[in-house]
Design a protein around this nucleic acid. Structure first.
Lengths: 166, 166
DNA sequence: TGAACCTCCTTGAGAGTTCAACTATTCCGA
DNA sequence: TCGGAATAGTTGAACTCTCAAGGAGGTTCA
């Protein structure tokens, strides 16, 4: 048994093919599997909490946060997409839904007639304010309460290394 | 601007409500946002590679790996779900699709007539073998090549702490 | 001016996940 | 052994994401 869930080799019963790719080491496999599990559980916990308390997935919550931080609480669709690390298509669908909820409004862009400006409504801001405490609490309990300050730093450095490369 | 994309507070302009929740510290916010971005990019890269090369998402790849590791390359649906950190519903849908592809077979369980046993077919095993090298390479390039051995250990410890709690 | 090209955003289809039933079977206590 | 509760797994609907396609508006350059 030396297959890795996603990162590792398959059990070939001792056979060693020519031109063997660089399989993961034992330590890397352990890290990879732990990471996959942690990630799944973390995302699941956070999504569930937000879905229950605010009726939106975490990705939508992030959109509201980015808008709340922008000057005038408004952002071009493409800028919003970039700020949230999302595709334009995803942003279109997401904003369409948030618009139906009354949390975001779509205005024409005054300087570029192709453009649209997404604006956080007062209702949207209120919803964000209402959802934030429970959400932060969930993030804290699920993640940061389990880590030492050094581990928080390490997590950031590891993440930044990955972002830098991709 | 001190909102956190999912972990942080909202800009209230200096107002300090009673019973303030434990917001994230500056360092925690940085770590959280970096983690979210890294995670999104990583999952996206890995899913794209597998979708292109094997025609399945990473979650399905993991199912094949778990089956390949099981004795006789077969596992009860519920055991498979647990091994892959997935819900039973998800496993039902996923195995249904893998069955259509001819990579997994579903047999009756001899000891429990409610049960089903998912078995990796020879075609499924071959597909896994074919997909593994490029996949491992993608994981390696996206993640482990960017990390020091100490960071790999740290990632595992952080992940295990999260899993332990959730 | 006009043609080619690029950018902004949307749309619809297809796929995977979740959630809430629902069926069938097994377990367990009176 | 009977009946209620728990367990195994499936199903369909709703939702989100991706991907490919497309419309509309800008930009460039001859």
């Amino acid at each position: 048994m030396n297959s890795t869930s996603g990162g590792g080799e398959i059990d070939r019963g001792g056979e060693a093919p020519a031109n063997e790719p660089r399989w993961l080491t034992h330590d890397e496999q352990r890290a990879w599997r732990a990471y996959l599990d942690a990630n799944r559980l973390l995302v699941e916990a956070i999504d569930q909490e937000l879905q229950r308390d605010a009726g939106i997935p975490h990705t939508y919550y992030e959109i509201l946060v980015r808008l709340s931080e922008a000057p005038g609480r408004r952002l071009r669709m493409s800028e919003l997409a970039e700020a949230a690390t999302a595709s334009r298509s995803r942003m279109s669908h997401a904003v369409a839904r948030l618009e139906v909820m009354g949390w975001v409004r779509r205005d024409e862009c005054p300087t570029d007639r192709r453009g649209q400006v997404a604006a956080l409504t007062d209702e949207g801001f209120a919803a964000l304010e209402a959802a934030a405490p429970a959400h932060v609490d969930c993030v804290r309990r699920s993640l940061f309460d389990q880590l030492t300050p050094d581990q928080v730093d390490a997590l950031r450095e590891i993440s930044e290394a990955v972002v830098r490369h991709l």
